[in-house]
Amino acid sequence: MRNALNRLFHTANTVILGKPRQIRLAICCLLARGHLLIEDVPGVGKTTLAHTLANLLGLKYQRIQFTSDLLPADIVGSSIFDGNNHAFHFQPGPIFHQMILADEINRSTPKAQSALLEAMEEHQVTVEGETRSLPEPFFVIATQNPVCQIGTFPLPESQLDRFLMRISLGYPDSRSERALLKGEDRSVLLEKLPVCLQTDELVAIQDQVRSIHVSDALLDYLQALIRFGRESGHYECGLSPRAGLALLNAARAWTFIEGREAVLPEDVQAVLAPVCGHRLRPVSSGATNADVIVAPMLEQVAAV
């Protein structure tokens, strides 16, 4: 299983070049059963990353392009009248897949956004009074353009909170970019990708992640971080209990990826920026870079 995980990283790195940290974080998010938000300018490989992960994990994959006229029914599906049986027949929407790529989520209206976000939280959708479960595992990767761009509906804080992590890919360095320009077409590459991790293996890993040991000393550190977020005065509002749980789960998954049995402060630090960056708003500067936002937390909270 460890080998399968390593192969997964290795193969993903051959498709998305020069972004090992982001790939690691994306898979960490998946293993912690969280949803991922990728915020970046168009064309840096957000969709490719989602597609790669889906193919490598052998998950049923569907992409939903969010536009301003997208309606909730376009996501969850609707009942269609069947002439033969003289009855309404539910036609499932694209949400009934194991991995959803919600592309440019902040281009659609809050109404359509909320349909997706409900499904993310509950792992089920209710259509016309009937509740339908979503397949397991269920993983949403949403991408969004930087908020300052024209024609966007920024996700409110309460909905940002549903995403376990927010990462951004950024431009590749020049060596990776050269390799990208020289290399094979990505769409061809994607189709040839082998399945590295079977679905049952993935679920097994997710269960193992849950059983990673967390000591009281580590919880002390985690709580000190949360307290700092609330009391230091650096941030407009502190971290919610949900954020604390998210941080713990992400740290566990990271520990698993690192191949250790107990969570260390360093594991928490590794996932702090992607987990808390979108949940905190600094008081003074308008910094949006997650590393910058959590820097005071990392530097000033004693980690032992």
Binding site: L264, P265, E266, Q269, M297, L298, E299, Q300, V301, A302, A303, V304
Partner: peptide, 9 residues
């Protein structure tokens, strides 16, 4: 050891 530096780092 810096305040925010973990033991492993």
């Amino acid at each position: 050891k810096q305040t925010g530096e973990g033991p492993r780092d």
